[in-house]
Every structure is written in structure tokens, then in C-alpha cells.
Nucleic acid binder design. Structure first.
Length: 647
RNA sequence: GCUGAUGUAGCUCAACAGGUAGAGCAGCGCACUCGUAAUGCGCAGGUCGCCGGUUCAAAUCCGGCCAUCAGCUCCA
């Protein structure tokens, strides 16, 4: 094909490249030809191409004037093609080793790929090694990935004959007019839209990571398949770096750090019911104090509602019908009671215990409410997913005309609080679920309000169809843990239904009774989950203002203990959390301990300091800061704490 | 809840092929009195997740349950 390029061809096509330069190529040339024309390096690193906006195989012939971008592993789409092709190699390897396996699907995902298989015997971890070896054989053979298009009936017949029931189901579900495409490499054929790498040999480093069950098509009513996860890279070194990164991330795991730093613990005695230890409590109380300050400033009033309430209330709120599966129950004097899974009904009762005027609106009731939810045993995860947690809740009652502005002010509060910790977050809009109460009209109205509020602020968000609460749509704020898994923290839910159910009213300008609109919202989400995220975000090295121990005094020898205690008492007077390492150890040892425990400030005290009434300051990140008068140190630390400096 | 894996001292992990448990760190004691990431010696610490079975003998083999981990489903 290289010769074709140099041969004068009758017909040419104009190709506009990524740098918006334009060049002519013979009609029918491929993206790969053009990559080769650009540079040797480009030809080597190219994995696929974007032709007029669509990602295609490198060997796709081009017959029309087009815009073309050569994709490499560094492009997100290129990465997907690379991993997707690796998934096909995985499927081929499994098929070679276990010929009676049935294939599910095998897409690329963030950081890798997976493939779902159905096989009577279950894969053992040892099998992964054998499969990986087989994959490397397939890579070595450098099979071409070849695209084939088939008539629907032929494709159905093809997979039926091979006993690939899942593929048959997939084809049957494809729209009538859709072209059916298959890809083959060597003997292996798979239903696939593509695109793919030119050949298996392009895959340079593969690693199978783990094994898990996954329901066919993500539906728990379907049979469970065996999913193999893996990843691949164009360089061995990149794979090693990736694996190292995972290892490092595991060291930041809040469950591990939480134990090490004595923040909290989880016991068999109470699965999903975390125990907070003194140091974890310090962190928690600091967060709550901060939260109270911010909410007072933002015009919220705090309330507290009971944990246990009568069944009739839950019937009224709709929880009995829509949320019973997740609730715990008890009985008192022969009557049914429920342990609250949400705070809203309590807040409704507070609202309805008096008359309200439109002049009070928006009326903001905040509540640190402890809720219990029966989560499935398999989903429990440290502090991130528990069965009892404290929501930093609020219920805001207002006029319909105040919706947009109020939602925007909650969004602003979320943003302000998250920024305190340098969190980056992403936002989802969740719409009407299948078990919802209320009419489509009301839902439509609520969803539109949320959209408008966000669009006006030019926020980026994705829409999560059918994932709203049963009483209203919501805006969700997601934060990431150390492994990049995301957890929903903040949420803003617009509710026209609860006020209806509880017959809430306010007296309007006209002197008549009207129905208020309500917002449910949390910012931390749950204090427990938020603390989990915080631990992983900072790797345990918290900003000074929330550090359980802010200053540790390290006396050099026993004779410096008295001076250490004197300094400690002095620091204590400033409300700074300080402790003395009284152990009879060398200073290097004490420093190591304090470093491991991520104490922000260490004060080394010996003869020199005692003599000059000084302290030697060491910061956990910067190291030795030299010695200075205590007063000066106090000034620096107090200011850092007061301003809540985030590192 | 489902699939797979794991469960031994406060923590991290050993104990080959059944013969009633061992190390490092942490803790405690003693000596050293020390200057910015581990001083030395000694002591103590275990219902081997729980229940049952096989066996002369079970941490080890088998069954049930519980918890944890990864993922699926679900959610703050």
C-alpha cells in the first residue's frame, strides 16, 4: 500500500488532520496509510482512528473527503480500543482452554477491561495464570483483527451453531436496521461493533487482576456469570507503574488507616455499625462544628427528631410502602414502630406543629440525624457503606417561586464546603424511579426545576435515568476514594409529594392556606462516609484543624520531661490538641512514630530549647523548621487552625 | 442477597504432606540519657471466626453458620 501512495492515482480524497492541515491521499487509502505518512512513530503507536467523528479501525478504507484523527493509547478512545481488543484476546484464551464456555460481553472500562463467561465449573485463581499465559501465546501469534459484516439471519445461525446463547440474545435485541458486525482473530469470532487494533501483537503488557460474579445484563434476576477483570498497556513499564499505583492506593484505604490511627473500628458484633474511637471522634466533632458554623451563616435552624417513630407515620410518608425492605422495626406496648431510615417524616412533624407564613420562607430545618438502613450484607464497606449513619440533613420549606434560587444556594453551599477540602466532585441528575409515588407531571416539573437551576450555573452533570428517590428527583454529588471508586455524598432532592402527604400548609399573601414545596438535602451525605473519603483523600495526613493530634512534644531525654509538660500546658491553654511522647526512647524513634501517625507538628525539646525557652519545630511534610519562641509557634498554628488551611 | 476468595496474638503474617502454635511490629519491665524516620536485653500476650462431623489425634480434612475482601445488584 505504501507504493500506492507514491503512484499517481486518478482519484484523490482530501483529508483534514487533527492540526487542521489538509492533505490529499489516493481514494481508498486507509487511516493506517495516513498514519504511516505522518511519521514512523505515529504508525507504530496508532491504535485506531477517528474518521469524521466516528472511531474506526485503522484499516478502514477512505473514499470521501474526510477529517481524520489518528488515535493512540494516550487518547481515551484509543485506550478503549486497546483494552477492548485485549478483552477479545482474553475471550479467545478462555475459549481455547475451556471450549464449552459461553461468551457474554467484554467491554473496556476505566483502567482496563473485563469479559463475562458462563461455564458450569467456576474459575479458580490459578486458572487466571493459565489464561494469562494463553493470552500471551495469542499475542505472540499476532493474529489480525478482521471485521466481517453479516446478515442478521446469518449471524444468528452462526452463533446458534456455536452454542453462543448470549450472543444470540444480543443480536435479537439489536434494532432491526442495525448492521451486524463480527470480528475475528485467528480461529476466534465474536459479535462486536469494534473497532479494534490491527493485530493481537500490538498488545504489549497484559495482566488479569481479579475474578468476580456478575449478573447477565446487570439484572439480579438473570443468571450469574463469571467476570474476569484485567488491564493492558502498550509498555511493560506502564503496567508496572499502574500496579504500583494500586498498591499505594491500598495503603490509603480508610479501613487500614482507620485502624492504624485508632479512629474507628468495625466488629463482628455489629456488622455495618461502626465504633468511633476518641481520635475519630475528635475529627467528627470538628466536622460537625464546622458544619454548624456554615449552616448558621446560611440561615439554617437546627432541630433533632426521634430515632424511633410509630408505624402510622411511616405509612403516611410512603416509606412503609416504598422503603420497607430497608427498614428495621421494633414494637412498643404492642404497637409497631420503625427505626428511622430517613429524617424527613420527623421534620414534617416539626413543621406541622405550628402555623407558618410565607414570610418565614425559605424555612430551613437542619438536622444531624442518625438513620438506620438494612443494607445487603455484601455491600457493606468500611465507613463508606454502613447500616447506621448520621446524615447532615436539612429540609427546606418554600414557595414554588423560590425553588430555583434556593437550589442554587444549596449548590453553592455544597461547593463551598467541598472546596474546604480541595475535593473535586462530579454531579448526577437522577430521575423518576420505577417505584416512585406521584404523577409524571409533578416529576416532570421537579426535574425541570433542578435542570434549570444547574443549567443557569453552567454546571456539568450526567443524567442518571430512574435513579431518583421515591418521592422526588435529585442532584447527587459524588466524591472519589483512593482507588477512584465514586461514592455519593451530597444530594439535593426536590419534593412536591411529602408536603401533600402530610397536608403541610402556609398562609400566603392572600390570607389563604397553600401547599409549600420542600427540598431534602445533605452535604457531607453521611458523616461516616465523608470521614472515610477524607481519610483516603488525605492519606491520613489531615489538615491541622481536623487532626486528632495537632502537636506532639518529643522530649529528648528524661530530664526534659518537666519542660515538655510545661510547654504542653501552655499549648493546651490555646485549645490546641497536644500530647507528650513520654516513652524512654531516642528522638529519632519518636519522630518516626509521629511521622507514621501523620501528626502535623512535632516539637523537639532538649537542653537548648529549655535554656532559651524555645521549641524546635518539625512539620510532618517539610521536616525540621528550626527553633523559635513558643509564642511564635502558637501564633502560626493558631492561625492555621482558625483559617482551616487545607494542605 | 448473589459469585469467588479469606479468617491464626492489638497490627502484619508463618506453621511443609493432620501429631494440640511461631516471627516482626506494638505493649510491659530493666539498662542506656540519647538532637530530627526504628538502642539493647528481657517479659507477657492466642477460645487458631463460631458450631458440628471424620480421626487415636484437627489451625490443618468435611459440613453448616458468622464476619471480612473483590465484584455484581442496591445506596448516603
Amino acid at each position: 500500500m505504501a507504493t500506492e501512495l507514491s503512484r499517481p492515482a486518478a482519484e484523490k480524497v482530501k483529508i483534514r488532520l487533527k492540526d487542521s492541515s489538509e492533505k490529499e491521499y489516493p481514494k481508498g487509502c486507509t487511516a493506517f496509510d495516513i498514519a504511516r505518512d505522518i511519521s514512523q512513530r505515529m504508525a507504530k503507536t496508532a491504535v485506531a482512528a477517528r474518521l469524521n467523528g466516528k472511531v474506526v479501525d485503522l484499516n478502514t478504507p477512505i473514499y470521501q473527503n474526510s477529517s481524520l484523527e489518528i488515535l493512540t493509547f494516550d487518547d481515551e478512545d484509543g485506550k478503549d480500543v486497546y483494552r477492548h481488543s485485549t478483552a477479545h484476546v482474553l475471550a479467545q484464551a478462555v475459549k481455547n482452554l475451556f471450549p464449552n464456555v459461553k461468551l457474554g460481553i467484554g467491554p473496556p472500562i476505566e483502567d482496563g477491561f473485563y469479559y463475562d463467561f458462563s461455564l458450569p465449573k467456576s474459575f479458580k485463581p490459578e486458572d487466571l495464570e493459565a489464561i494469562e499465559k494463553e493470552m500471551n501465546e495469542i499475542i505472540k501469534k499476532d493474529y489480525q483483527f478482521v471485521r466481517h459484516e453479516m446478515q442478521r439471519e446469518d449471524a444468528l445461525e452462526f452463533f446458534r451453531k456455536r452454542g453462543e446463547d448470549y450472543k444470540v440474545e444480543l443480536i435479537n435485541d439489536l434494532p432491526e436496521e442495525e448492521k451486524i458486525s463480527l470480528y475475528s482473530q485467528g480461529e476466534f469470532w465474536d459479535l462486536c461493533v469494534g473497532p479494534h487494533l490491527p493485530s493481537t501483537g500490538r498488545i504489549k503488557a497484559v495482566k488479569l487482576l481479579n475474578l468476580a460474579g456478575a449478573y447477565w445484563r446487570g439484572n439480579e434476576k438473570n443468571e450469574m456469570m463469571q467476570r474476569i477483570y484485567g488491564t493492558s498497556f502498550p509498555k511493560k513499564r506502564m503496567l508496572e507503574d499502574y500496579l504500583k499505583r494500586i498498591e499505594e492506593a491500598k495503603k490509603r484505604d480508610h479501613r487500614r488507616l482507620g485502624t492504624q490511627m485508632e479512629l474507628f473500628s468495625l466488629k463482628e458484633a455489629g456488622p455495618g455499625f461502626p465504633f468511633f474511637h476518641p481520635k475519630g471522634m475528635v475529627l467528627r466533632i470538628e466536622l460537625e462544628n464546622f458544619w454548624r458554623e456554615e449552616h448558621k451563616k446560611a440561615g439554617y435552624q437546627e432541630i433533632k427528631t426521634p430515632i424511633i417513630l410509630n408505624r402510622t407515620l411511616w405509612e403516611q410518608s410512603g416509606h412503609w410502602e416504598h422503603y420497607r425492605e430497608n427498614m428495621y422495626f421494633t414494637s412498643i406496648d404492642g404497637e409497631d414502630y420503625a427505626i428511622k431510615p430517613m429524617n424527613c417524616p420527623g421534620a414534617m412533624l416539626v413543621y406541622s406543629s405550628g402555623q407558618h407564613s410565607y414570610r418565614e420562607f425559605p424555612l430551613r430545618f437542619a438536622e444531624m440525624g442518625l438513620v438506620h438502613r438494612h443494607e445487603l450484607s455484601g455491600v457493606l464497606h468500611g465507613l463508606m457503606r454502613v447500616r447506621a449513619f448520621t446524615q447532615d440533613d436539612a429540609h427546606i420549606f418554600m414557595l414554588p417561586s423560590q425553588i430555583k434560587e434556593e437550589i442554587q444556594s444549596v449548590i453553592a453551599l455544597v461547593d463551598r464546603i467541598y472546596k474546604m477540602f480541595n475535593f473535586s466532585y462530579y454531579v448526577e441528575l437522577s430521575t423518576k424511579p420505577s417505584n416512585a409515588m406521584g404523577s409524571d407531571d409533578i416529576w416532570e416539573k421537579a426535574i425541570t426545576s433542578l435542570k434549570e437551576a444547574m443549567d443557569e450555573k453552567e454546571m456539568e452533570y450526567t443524567v442518571n435515568e430512574g435513579e431518583g428517590a421515591f418521592y422526588g428527583p435529585k442532584i447527587d454529588f459524588h466524591l472519589q476514594d483512593s482507588l477512584g471508586r465514586t461514592w455519593q455524598c451530597g444530594t439535593i432532592q426536590l419534593d412536591f409529594l411529602m408536603p401533600e402527604k402530610f397536608n403541610l400548609t402556609y398562609i400566603g399573601e392572600d390570607g389563604n392556606k397553600h401547599r409549600p414545596v420542600m427540598i431534602h438535602r445533605v452535604i457531607f451525605g453521611s458523616i461516616e462516609r465523608f470521614i472515610g473519603i477524607l481519610i483516603e483523600h488525605y492519606g491520613g495526613a489531615f489538615p491541622t484543624w481536623i487532626s486528632p493530634v495537632q502537636v506532639r512534644i518529643l522530649p529528648i531525654a528524661e530530664r526534659h520531661l518537666d519542660y515538655a509538660y510545661k510547654i504542653r500546658d501552655e499549648i493546651n491553654k490555646y485549645g490546641i490538641r497536644v500530647e507528650v511522647d513520654t516513652r524512654n526512647e531516642k528522638v529519632g524513634y519518636k519522630i518516626r512514630q509521629a511521622q507514621i501517625e501523620k501528626v502535623p507538628y512535632m516539637l523537639v525539646l532538649g537542653d537548648k530549647e529549655k535554656e532559651n525557652e524555645n521549641v524546635s519545630v518539625r512539620k510532618r511534610k517539610e521536616g525540621d523548621q528550626g527553633s523559635k519562641p513558643l509564642k511564635e509557634f502558637l501564633k502560626i498554628v493558631s492561625k492555621e487552625i482558625k483559617l482551616k488551611v487545607a494542605e
